[in-house]
Amino acid sequence: MSIGVWSLVVALAALVALTFIPTQYVIQRPGPVYDTLGTAPSADGAQVPLIEVEGTRTYETGGALNLTTVQLMGNRERTPSWLELATAWLDPSRAVVPIDVAFPQGLTAEERDERNAALMVNSQHEATAAALIELGYDVGATVEVVEVIEDSPSVGVLEVGDVILAVDGRPLESAADLRAEIQKGKGEAVELTLQDGDGERTVTITPEETTDDAGETVWLIGVAPTTEYDFPVDVTIQLDNVGGSSAGMMFTLGIIDTLTPGQLNGGKDVAGTGTIDASGAVGPIGGIRQKLYGARDAGADYFLAPETNCDEVVGHVPDGLEVFSTGTLDESLEILEVIAEGGDTSELPTCTAP
Results as ranks from 00 to 15, higher is better:
51 I>R: 07
78 R>E: 14
65 L>R: 08
60 E>R: 13
53 V>F: 11
55 G>T: 06
89 W>Q: 08
53 V>D: 05
84 E>S: 13
69 T>E: 07
96 V>Y: 09
87 T>R: 13
81 S>K: 02
96 V>P: 04
67 L>Y: 03
69 T>L: 02
41 P>V: 00
88 A>S: 12
40 A>T: 12
78 R>L: 05
66 N>G: 02
101 V>P: 07
64 A>V: 12
57 R>G: 01
105 Q>K: 15
63 G>I: 05
101 V>H: 10
99 I>G: 05
41 P>S: 00
71 Q>K: 12
58 T>F: 10
68 T>R: 01
61 T>S: 14
85 L>A: 06
106 G>T: 02
46 A>D: 09
90 L>A: 15
68 T>Y: 06
67 L>F: 10
104 P>H: 05
64 A>C: 13
66 N>A: 14
88 A>C: 11
44 D>E: 15
78 R>K: 12
44 D>I: 03
72 L>N: 01
105 Q>C: 00
107 L>R: 12
69 T>K: 03
86 A>M: 13
65 L>Y: 11
39 T>R: 12
97 V>Y: 09
39 T>Y: 11
71 Q>W: 03
96 V>K: 11
81 S>V: 01
101 V>G: 01
44 D>T: 11
68 T>M: 09
53 V>Y: 04
94 R>K: 15
78 R>H: 05
52 E>P: 06
